[in-house]
Nucleic acid binder design. Sequence first.
DNA 1: AAGCGAACCTGGCTGC
DNA 2: TGCAGCCAGGTTCGCT
Length: 293
Amino acid sequence: MPELPEVETVRRGLEPAMVGARFSAVETRRPNLRFPFPERFADRLTGARVNALTRRAKFLIASLSSGEALILHLGMSGRFLVETGKTATQPGVFHQDVGRHAAHDHVVFRFDGGATVTYNDVRRFGFMDLVSQEGLEASPHLSGLGIEPLGNDFHADALDRLFSGRAAPLKAALLDQKLIAGLGNIYVCEALHRAGLAPTRAAGSIAGPGKRALAARQALATAIRDVLTEAVAAGGSSISDHARTDGSLGYFQHSFRAYDREGKACTTPGCSGTIRRMVQSGRSTFHCALCQD
DNA sequence: AAGCGAACCTGGCTGC
DNA sequence: TGCAGCCAGGTTCGCT
């Protein structure tokens, strides 16, 4: 499910229920997700108040009154459901379509105001960790992350610096969280299509002093920022698993120009090409061979 | 060092 | 209807 726009959508959904609230009870229904839960996970959370809920790349970070920070990652299929005290008796879309969801409810956070936040993750690639707030930036999960693509430091010059000398294809370089943190398969495909750049092109080819390289990295920086901003505004993309915290669906998938459009006409104005699917480093790449080069 | 493929895990869809 | 095979938003590990 979740790339940056989906994680940001989840953050905005969790914020009103969690920030300012105190954990009254925490229930883990299995010993691990992708990794084991940290020692005394429920005990360390219970009684702590959430001071802030922020996002770094695809990570959610809850700053706690205990001095610790709760790090959350949704993996491929992680989702949260918020039930406020008032509507707790009203089943949401989230649990409506079968028991499959309840079967994969792995963690339940209860808050003193009566709200419940349930974490559901079919494939269990997500994880949760607790670290001290002082050690947050240096923690193994966050320390190696690259720049935020929606941050002020992200622009064509940053791409020049990051991609210089890189032989890896643009697709792989953009997926590398150590360079730019937050993009995933969908938005890399979409950004490259918007920028008119072939996914197979060497990342280093858009670095350096040439005019064409400069134009290419400016186009790419703009495309990345635009597609992420539009996707956040749409509440993310709902392919199969992603849902917002109230169970409703994001709708950016209706705006895809390349991803999952194999065989369909390219939508670039004036282009008569067709979207093709190829595999790069084990992931599907969707692109137009005519207008991306 | 960088880059690629496999592994982690479950479920949905396609095709025989 | 059943079953095998492929595919899925991410990250990490191990082998070139």
